[in-house]
Design a protein around this nucleic acid. Structure first.
Lengths: 251, 251
DNA sequence: CCAATAGTGTCTATGAGACAATATAAC
DNA sequence: GTTATATTGTCTCATAGACACTATTGG
């Protein structure tokens, strides 16, 4: 029986109540580490545990709900700070709806993935005082099934770095090739050969384009001033930047 | 405010009622064409239109709901025919929840993608009498946002053929390289060079393994008897079988 | 000066794809 | 026999990655 004929004959409110929420895996890079935005839970269940930011879906699209939740948790809801959210890349990750994933009632949660260049630390005193960035390797024992959601989000992020220009969502509008390489290193958790990476990025059509400008200064410990680039118009990278040591992932 | 603290303070039943359904994009190959399973709608809205099979989620996981719906629509619910479903590859596609996607109420639908070797035509007289396989290029003007869901499913399927052994889900347990090539041709909608495809498939570790057997007979119009293979243990293809003419998809 | 980094050059191994060649089986 | 198909061979070009080298800048 299809959805509609079912609907025509039944009142859905007669069914056990189901709630729909969004949860957001928001990733950024701070101090060379890949970090995820977490909130502190003060109440049962999972009091004292950390969780992904999220909340109920209102009269809005799922995408809007996810963006709203991120804005609320980061405190970037107004003023010039709200503009920061414009550069955040958003995409739906996956939906989690196992019975029992929330001990109180049936909750179906649509998880989103967000990639941010460098959002500020949520400031104390705001609504978001209980939210903060945590290096992903320290984000363990999250509430509900959020460990799984985070793991799925990280896997997606690592995969998409290979064949999309997603990495540019983690840096400013103007960036050096080294900065881009550090994004890959942080997300993949391994160093990349600077020379080969440099040549490869420039060889992918539409990945980056030169601004003609040069960085204000060299590296912290010396080195020439790097050229600046901005994101190109490619939506897919071809050829892709395959990550090393993918043999493990094959079987 | 996160999901849980919100829950603690609010009765979700006070919110506008939201229903959760699953819709299934079930694909198979019949007569060399990629086909999708559709159901005929007899009632408003969208009476006379076709739709993807789907229905409400019950006290079960989302995956179970999708599998159940497919079983009901294909009539493969009992006996030896039910075993056919064991070889169906299932994966979650995406969730659709825009307000207004169903004109009657807020419905959030979790879409699934199913790849089947060769399911029988749903038999008349069963519950599934109103369901049938349709070549994807003829599947237009579907109910609700199902055109979009189908398009997303096809895009996913085409992508996954590149880097996963998904194509083996469309053929029997034993198959020839030519049969595998015809799967790629049907899903990608373009012919592939037989010689290069052959060598490439065999060069990917874990994609296929020889059975040692040979097909009972040659091609319909002549040719040698092909060797038989079965799916290997690879979960990802490396190197990938990149599809031709991907330049269009880059920008 | 010294150390670190940006950027380029070179070499090798591998894969993609065009094309050709050979062998086998249906009709 | 004729034709289509399975399978293998060969050649060329592009790319990945290892490694080396030069130039530039901060300290």
């Amino acid at each position: 029986m299809d959805e509609a004929s079912f609907l025509a004959g039944y009142d859905p409110r007669a069914y056990p109540s189901v709630a729909v929420t969004v949860d957001v895996v928001a990733l950024t890079i701070r101090d060379g580490k890949l970090c995820v935005l977490l909130v502190e839970r003060g109440e049962q269940p999972f009091a004292g545990h950390r969780a992904l930011p999220g909340g109920f879906v209102r009269e809005e699209t799922l995408d809007e709900a996810a963006l709203r939740e991120l804005a609320e948790e980061t405190g970037l809801t107004s003023g010039e700070a709200a503009g920061e959210l414009d550069r955040v890349h958003f995409e739906q990750l996956r939906t989690y709806g196992n019975p029992g994933r929330d001990p109180r009632m049936r909750i179906v949660s649509v998880a989103y993935l967000a990639f941010a260049p460098h959002l500020p630390e949520p400031t104390a005193g705001s609504d978001a005082a209980h939210a903060y960035w945590v290096p992903v390797e320290e984000a363990k024992d999250l509430a509900f099934d959020h460990d799984q959601i985070l793991a799925d989000g990280l896997e997606r992020a690592r995969d998409k770095l290979e064949y999309t220009p997603l990495a540019t969502a983690f840096v400013g509008t103007d960036f050096t090739i080294s900065e881009l390489r550090q994004v890959y290193a942080a997300v993949w958790g391994e160093e990349l050969h600077a020379g080969n990476f440099h040549r490869k990025v420039l060889s992918v059509p539409g990945f980056v384009e030169s601004t003609g400008e040069t960085a204000a200064r060299g590296g912290e410990r010396g080195g020439p001033k790097a050229k600046l680039y901005r994101a190109g118009d490619a939506r897919l990278l071809h050829p892709a930047l395959l990550r090393p040591t993918r043999e493990d992932r094959v079987r």
